[in-house]
Nucleic acid binder design. Structure first.
Lengths: 200, 200
DNA sequence: TAAATCATTTAACACTGTTAAGCAAATGTA
DNA sequence: TACATTTGCTTAACAGTGTTAAATGATTTA
């Protein structure tokens, strides 16, 4: 009876080992270098064993994406908790978003852009993908004095924010040449600009 | 003597055929589905012949990227030519940029984000990658009454513009279902916002 | 002890990019 | 015309990829 649990615990452990190995490879060599045999090597198994834990390679990336969103959400919540005014909260959160992307460059790439399936499919398979939305929109709503967080106005503002930040990150992640100073300048400029534009 | 030219012409033709076939495959099945054997099939040759014309697969993608930048530049110049006021020019150009990305979704993906090498390497190998900069900065400079087009101020503003537009495109290209209306709203909002912020 | 289940590996398939060897036709040279 | 050389192209092969099926050997069950 108890041995079942021990075995289940072991299985769970190698599942985690697979994800850890995958993330480590992604972080060290980039997501294009990730292969099942490389993962298997790292956990000292042969490749097909992975299919006992994941349906396919895509499922591993999806799981990494989930972990990424949870990690990102943790950072966002932390940044949010440090301020009371919604304007300050937004500023801190987008800065945290920015920092997360560069602290986890490859992971960020996996979260956006690598997976074949599109955003809508992603949200279906991965409720965690909506965590940023849940984190940001209350502050936007409070700032604009709008109760309905699903209204088009908030949606538009949220996408404007996200576009600026994600765009700047994308441009920088695929090859940083412009100085970090200019980037931070652009980021702060854009964010404070948007915040001011929606402050009554 | 003349036969040499005919042969050279034929070689140039199959070079173009390779690129055309590649672009067609990319447009129809996405860039992940592009394979050398598929290209070879399309031009009715076998795979190794491609290495007579391109160093490797990456070189084909690089050439497609060049074509993409030239096409984009054509659209930008056309949009620019339709207006005189720099503010109007910028608005029209970024709209043209946006339209280009969605009219050539897969090509846009190849241009940004697919290639392994980063932006700085890309500009080295591909001077055409700076065409958008050349197209936009004069209008920004005129609007801000700044002569030096390489100044940090213009650089910052250009990256702000680009981030917004590229970010919005990225988010949408990787499968957004949010209505086109909201997107255009975000785009116009952001662009006019930035333009207003730099209009004296 | 025999049967059945489980974890794991080996082998294989159909792909991928890429390189080397071979072949057959076109060309240059005597 | 006859031979040598170059050219254009293909076949074969290598190492790698994701993935599946079959085999193996240990562990649990009856």
């Amino acid at each position: 009876m108890a041995s079942k649990e021990r075995i289940a615990r072991l299985k769970e452990e190698t599942r985690i080992n697979i994800l850890d190995a995958a993330l480590q490879i992604v972080k060290q060599e980039g997501w294009q270098a990730l292969s099942l045999r490389k993962i298997a090597d790292a956990i000292e198994y042969t490749a097909p064993i992975i299919y006992e834990y994941f349906a396919n390679k895509e499922a591993i990336l999806l799981e990494l994406t989930r972990k990424g969103f949870l990690l990102l959400d943790r950072d966002l919540q932390q940044a949010k908790a440090e301020h009371r005014l919604p304007a300050k909260q937004l500023e801190a959160m987008w800065l945290a978003y920015w920092n997360f992307a560069f602290a986890n460059k490859e992971l960020y790439q996996v979260m956006f852009g690598v997976s074949t399936n599109c955003c809508c499919e992603l949200v279906n398979q991965l409720p965690e993908a909506e965590l940023p939305w849940d984190a940001f929109t209350p502050a936007i709503g409070e700032l604009m004095h709008i109760e309905d967080l699903d209204s088009d106005v908030i949606c538009t503002k949220y996408y404007t924010f996200w576009s600026v930040v994600h765009g700047l990150i994308s441009i920088n992640i695929l090859g940083r040449d412009s100085s970090d100073d200019i980037n931070r300048q652009v980021l702060r400029d854009a964010i404070t600009g948007i915040i001011r534009s929606i402050t009554p």
